[in-house]
């Protein structure tokens, strides 16, 4: 039976791996469906201490991965399909193989929330995008909508003006919750038009197989209208990736994993959680890394007490 299996490969997972490997626990990391996590779709990370001039998100993950590997972390690039409790630990199934482990560190992170429309799903990759950094390029000279009211919506809208002729920044409320500085930035950008109190009810046109427009609803008057558009980007927050542990461990009212305050312990002995899957509040690369360290130390102590 293994000592520790780490599920997820963002800053939390890799930090846990570095600590667990250095403690000689021979950790095994499953990288999951989106190796590297959310940082893989960001560009410059300017607030991670130790990188004076900033670092690209994917590069940061690459060096963390290498650091974990250097101390003997075993890495498997597949997704964990199931996790259950067995006598003396857990059984993990991934890519058809079964693994047994005394402890599990859950660092599955969070994934960008979608609008939740059928038409959005059907037109994904056909004008509906989940990654402005990747797809902005294809909207040169076109008109796009960015949905959302937080900092990341402001950032995406600003970024997309490099390519698009016009960016409509759409929010269903009457004001943004983004920081002042980000709001000022979008207001000063002539290519950005702010559209408040409006939500998308349908993206057109599934029959054509490409985004041609949207159906909109005024959230105050209820009035409906249509608008021509070439692309739709949503930046409306994140959802924790908890499908693996639903029914197994306690979640809070927002569906994030509950941990004992000041630790990474969940309500299941030997199962620790770190990073965004248990943090709806800070959600930073550095806080994820910090809790990853906590999880490895908690697992190490748990194993030591078992002996």
């Amino acid at each position: 039976m293994r000592n520790v299996i780490i599920v997820g490969s963002g800053p939390a997972g890799w930090t846990a791996a570095v600590y667990a490997a250095r403690a000689d626990l021979q950790p095994l990391v499953f990288e999951g469906a989106e190796p590297g996590g959310q940082l893989m779709t960001t560009t410059e990370v300017e607030n991670f201490p130790g990188f004076e001039n900033g670092i690209q998100g994917p590069e940061l993950m690459e060096v963390m991965r290498k650091q974990a590997k250097r101390f003997g972390t075993e890495i498997i690039s597949s997704m964990v399909e199931s996790l259950k409790q067995i006598d003396g630990g857990f059984e993990v199934v991934a890519a058809g193989k079964t693994y047994e482990t005394k402890t599990v560190i859950l660092s599955t992170g969070a994934t960008a929330r979608r609008l939740g429309l059928e038409s959005e799903k059907a037109l994904y990759g056909k004008g509906v995008s989940a990654c402005a950094t990747c797809d902005g390029f294809f909207f040169k000279g076109k008109n796009v909508i960015v949905v959302g009211g937080g900092d990341s919506a402001m950032e995406e809208a600003s970024f997309l003006t490099r390519f698009a002729d016009k960016v409509y920044l759409m929010h269903r409320r009457d004001e943004f919750r983004a920081s002042k500085i980000m709001q000022e930035r979008v207001k000063a950008n002539a290519k950005i038009e702010i559209v408040l109190n409006t939500e998308i009810t349908e993206i057109l046109d599934v029959n054509v197989g490409q985004v041609t427009g949207v159906k909109l609803r005024d959230t105050v008057s209820g009035e409906m209208r249509e608008m021509k558009i070439d692309g739709v980007f949503a930046a409306i927050g994140h959802e924790p990736n908890v499908s693996l542990v639903k029914g197994l461990i306690d979640l809070d009212e927002k569906s994030y994993v509950k941990t004992v305050p000041g630790s990474s312990k969940t309500n299941i002995e030997g199962l620790f959680a770190c990073g965004d899957v248990q943090d709806s509040h800070y959600r930073q690369a550095i806080t994820a890394a910090g809790t990853g360290c906590m999880a490895a130390l908690d697992a190490e102590r748990f194993l030591a007490n078992q002996e």
Binding site: T41, T42, C134
Partner: peptide, 14 residues
């Protein structure tokens, strides 16, 4: 793919 697309850097080596 493109060099500036982060997820492409995962897909490429695979």
């Amino acid at each position: 793919w493109a060099t500036w697309c982060p997820p492409c850097r995962i897909t490429g080596p695979i």
